[in-house]
Nucleic acid binder design. Structure first.
Lengths: 136, 136
DNA sequence: GTCCTTGCAAAGCGTTTGCACAGAA
DNA sequence: TTCTGTGCAAACGCTTTGCAAGGAC
């Protein structure tokens, strides 16, 4: 897994610093769609001099190199995840948790939107998650 | 159209003030997915004492009553539109303009995500719009 | 030496909150 | 009078920027 990251960095021409590696591995392991604050709080123990600026720097670097994707939430904060086209999202409207769900495919008819070049499609299901259903 | 808004307000038990009416009609007419700033700038002439706080107040009221929806953009700003389930969005990754496109339906299999209650689905196509294609 | 990574402090920007004033009921 | 709509000013929270110190090469 670590070698995986190192290899990706070599390919991209960026250096696999320990900070970058820890952040990447955190994203790869937690699968939590964390905020910058989440990442900072969870890594400050193993990287005692870490700053939020560095978390932002690293994530923006990862975004530029398409290693991660960001999700814009209703709280005007960004959440991050390893780039992975193989899933869609379910957002619970009560607790705002974002869940990964098996990819939801769409059936858009490109002839109905001529002139537009479609490169990607995002599907977000919205509703109530099992945990919140129990509490109702 | 104006009567339409007044009627909706009566149903919802909120007063159809001139400010609220202008903001609603602006959203209904422009179809621009405007930001709060856009709305403020475009209405300040006809509502000289308007403040951004009021625009926020009115939009949040509309959100509570399901008259409008908000879209979270990558710039951490919200954009607003009249509630209308009949369309999906296309976002140009170059100019960031959001276009309304005919509704894109999905084929999610709810048996694959048991326990989740799905109430809504959002589809966003991402790519390059005709205007930006010309410039490349 | 140069280049790059890191991180503190401050600024920036969209949004919300506190509060007060004015108008409607 | 009481309630509601409005709006100024300040606070708030997430993110970016300026810049300097330290380390790699």
């Amino acid at each position: 897994m670590g070698n995986n990251f190192t290899k990706k960095c070599l390919e991209l021409g960026i250096s696999p610093s320990i900070t970058r590696k820890k952040i990447y591995e955190y994203l790869e392991t937690s699968r939590n769609h964390p905020t910058v604050d989440d990442i900072y709080r969870d890594l400050i123990d193993s990287l005692p001099t870490l700053s939020k600026t560095t978390v932002y720097n690293v994530l923006n670097l990862f975004l530029e190199h398409n290693l991660v994707e960001s999700i814009n939430t209703s709280n005007n904060e960004k959440r991050y995840e390893i780039k992975d086209e193989g899933h869609s999202h379910f957002t619970c409207k009560i607790c705002n948790t974002i869940y990964d769900v098996p990819k939801v495919s769409t059936s858009y008819d490109s002839t109905r939107i001529p002139g537009f070049t479609i490169e990607n499609e995002q599907v977000n299901l919205i509703g109530i998650c099992p945990d919140c259903m129990k509490k109702i």
